[in-house]
Nucleic acid binder design. Sequence first.
DNA 1: ATTATGATTGAGACCGGACTCACAGGGGGT
DNA 2: ACCCCCTGTGAGTCCGGTCTCAATCATAAT
Lengths: 358, 358
Amino acid sequence: MSSNSSRRREITVADVAKAAQVSKAQAARALGNYGAVSEEVRGRVLAAAEELSYRPNELARSMNTGKSNTIGVVVGDIENPHFGLATRGITDTAKKSGYNVILINTDEELTAEIEAVHVLLDKRVDGLIVAPASSVETEHLRYVHETGRPLVLLDRKAERLDVETIAVSMAEISYESTRYLLEAGHRRIAFISTLKAGSPYRAGMALDSSQISERLEGMRRAFTEIGLTLSEDQVRLNAGDADSIRNITRELLLMPEPATAIVASDGLIALSVVEAIQELGLSIPSDVSFLMYDDFSWTRLTSPPLTVIAQPVYEMGVAAADALIRQIEGRKPASDGPEFSARLIRRGSVAMARTARV
Amino acid sequence: MSSNSSRRREITVADVAKAAQVSKAQAARALGNYGAVSEEVRGRVLAAAEELSYRPNELARSMNTGKSNTIGVVVGDIENPHFGLATRGITDTAKKSGYNVILINTDEELTAEIEAVHVLLDKRVDGLIVAPASSVETEHLRYVHETGRPLVLLDRKAERLDVETIAVSMAEISYESTRYLLEAGHRRIAFISTLKAGSPYRAGMALDSSQISERLEGMRRAFTEIGLTLSEDQVRLNAGDADSIRNITRELLLMPEPATAIVASDGLIALSVVEAIQELGLSIPSDVSFLMYDDFSWTRLTSPPLTVIAQPVYEMGVAAADALIRQIEGRKPASDGPEFSARLIRRGSVAMARTARV
DNA sequence: ATTATGATTGAGACCGGACTCACAGGGGGT
DNA sequence: ACCCCCTGTGAGTCCGGTCTCAATCATAAT
């Protein structure tokens, strides 16, 4: 029973040094495993440390090494499995290199993100991984960058900011999947996103998110290519909560010329959209085709299983952490870094459009 | 443009003090908002701080206040939406009181958990929330407790350890739902859990998890009550990854006397079980009834929608954080703390057992 | 005018480690 | 025997804040 659970004060090197009858400096060297220490002294010090159940104060250590072995992660919503998985990739990788993760949720709120970044900076994290809420408002990110702190962006790019970014190029996959829908005869293809915007979508309007811009660009390109245009009223933003998603879905499907295909911008949206479709008594894909971003396991369990755009989310988390740690440790990029791309997985939720079939 | 982005060294109080032509002590008081400072000095100091874009070093601050305003959270797997939601509850609540969260994943590995706890302690977090991997091996948790650091357990209890615990009582709901299955005529009711165990399940064997023990106890009680016994070969542990879950499911359904109902111990298991059932060409609930723990949104989208045991996961995260912060701030418990209970949500995945119908 | 009272202020200690520096011994080279 | 160099060691500084303490100052009370 060496559980000398000393009540109040924590044990410090000084205590250990005294117990081992050496100078504080020697004790520190033995414990910190640096400098020159004789076997004899080392033995005594370690024994004393064990006996007192000494534990180093990482705060103190961080303070004068300037390293906290901690990285900050700022995401919009961990509850979203997309970020859950990415976070998992980050923490797994971080742990492997001896880093811990401080996680902050922003609810996709810019002000929360700005505050989060400052808090993390104040805590002297060694680097930051941010999934920026906005691709446009990036002053705070620029500040991080100027400060010299390593920074890696995840999922979304930031305009006019030269920072390593791990994201899949959305334009291409969006183009491809839109073509797929068009070829199935769909002309009224709706796109629903949580992206906050002050006004309803209009072609050419500036969007806050590089991801969404790219996706819309891809859609537009596919339409244009066959001489058509993506109609503005089919693009719905501000699909924040379950209720608004439900309403949007109803609108889209009950309007005079209803959408024949719906694309959900993420898994959370998808849940509510599919539910709303079911509530309307419509069925996928005979009444409406459905396509969603992110390949979650449950998408294989519905009937029909859902056609999805799979993104290597976990791997991107890993890559982001790798990139960040590389920056922190001052190593040059191994190569140009892997390119990540999404792919369309055709399952059963897309069919020929009604109009085309009739 | 006050972006005097000074290259190297960080700005400290000393710098601000010099710029404001006051002593370091005064500058610190003005910045830290403590002690007595004249309006005039405060003004000059704040102006100087702004000008230099001074940011306090939280590490240094923590070091001599002894408070880090950070809580540590140790969970088995954030990728599991169960913990994702709980974590969300924790971070939301923590933020509200000005605390940040350091998150560590253990993969339900005891050694990883032990290490995680020490890392967090070394970083001098103000308190810990742990979802213990084992209800039996709790030395490290006892150590935290002895150390005087506030500790709250989430989801699972720890034996012989008097620590505030936020968990739903599983015995009752398990009893209730087992009765429900029994009344539907099921006799061969299988239970699948990820819980690691050295040997196949046998009645009365010591289990590492209070949750699972309670659930089995509830099942046993329901069986006993009507003069039957829960057969040991229907309880399957070690359902770690998708493959083993699939195999277990096949075994259960292909044995001479197949299970007529399957209970999945969590959402991740459920996914693989349902998938395996579909692969076998069987259908829920006509061939086999299905019941799962955790009410995730997607359970409403399958056909039929799944009958689940809903747990107030988010609320429990909130409660855990509340309890911890209360402890940290030395306040007494408001009341006896809310009791959390799960409830059975009957949807469509449980039907009369075949044998009973014939 | 004088003293008491309280607000301001600066110097310096301190938190708990890491690290610099000066110095003591011991062994190898010549 | 003499010098050099390397290993060991302790004293003390530093990191960037907080906080104690004594000194200073102004104003109110006597």
